[in-house]
Amino acid sequence: MNIILVLLPVAVGLGLLGLAAFLWSLKSGQFDDLEGAAWRAIMDDDEKPNRQPDA
């Protein structure tokens, strides 16, 4: 059962990683314009992408 001592921190750590990723994406404004983001994915633009506004 000692494997639990390894698996528990791994499981919680992965969860925390997911949470951190979500909080980061929220902070960097990726949820501000859900409709626009969908379209941006298919814009074939060679020019440099625009920076996100600082909210």
């Binding site: 501000d32 314009d33 859900l34 409709e35 626009g36 379209w39 941006r40 814009m43 633009d45 020019e47 625009n50 920076r51 996100q52 506004p53």
Partner: peptide, 24 residues
Amino acid sequence: CMRKIENGISALPGVTLARVNLTE
């Protein structure tokens, strides 16, 4: 529309950001 606006406004002198929010 989004692309036209962003490219058009970015071309103005000194503009560092032109970002359309399509939802709003």
